[in-house]
Amino acid sequence: MPTTSITLDETPLVLHLLRRADDALILGHRLSEWTGHAPTLEEELALANMALDLIGQARLLYAYAGSLAGHDEDQLAYLRDARAWRNCLLVELPNGDFAQTILRIVLFSAFMDPCWQATTRSADPTLAAIAAKAEKEVAYHLRHSAEWLIRLGDGTEESHRRAEAALDALWPYSGELFEADAADQAMIDAGIAPDPATLRGTWDATLADVLARATLARPGDTWMQTGGRTGRHTEHLGYLLADLQYLQRAYPGATW
């Protein structure tokens, strides 16, 4: 394994795979931070479960991207510095309280569920196979997190207030999910990935339904944060990677 950060030839397909994989790994990392600290024992297991699903998805995607770009999954996860990460900003934000953690899963999974469903019909058979597995998992993440958001929104005054605050904090990070640049367009044109614009209707309907049942109001249109897909991240990603990559950076070249 090289001792410094790797450089990658980001073909549109490699870039697409990295965007999906980085989203999954970073959100999985955040959810894994709850281990030992969740509000109930049952939720402890559920959060770890979702984290495991996401880390598993990331590994499949990295393995595929790596086979195209000449690296293994660990090189892609451990030897890229922050500016080479392609995840959306939403997933890298700190967990916040339980309401914020749950709402993030709702926002992300409400997008990824139809996205993976559409990707099962991808012209790329490897990606279609990954999507078939991921779709089942994300459907559960969406159901589980939506149920919690409804409990929190509808529960007590305090939980409602916290759910509202989470919605206010995270909503500006939801727009990035729907972005498509030239590389994405190439994937859409080749029938490899769905056009995110076509997923908007499903996402809106899911959010409308869940927010209504949670007695929460959908925030108004606002300026949306952007930058993650091209490597312009929040201040938080660097610290996350310092944790994630610590051993590989401290003992370059070692096998674990």
């Binding site: 894994s32 281990t35 770890a48 495991l52 880390i55 590994r59 660990d74 451990y78 051993l247 070692a254």
Partner: peptide, 18 residues
């Protein structure tokens, strides 16, 4: 868990703690 040295080790450790 967050500092496990490879993705395989990370998944195994998380599953173990779970």
């Amino acid at each position: 868990i967050t500092r496990a040295p490879s993705l395989r080790r990370k998944a195994a450790l998380l599953a173990k703690v779970q």
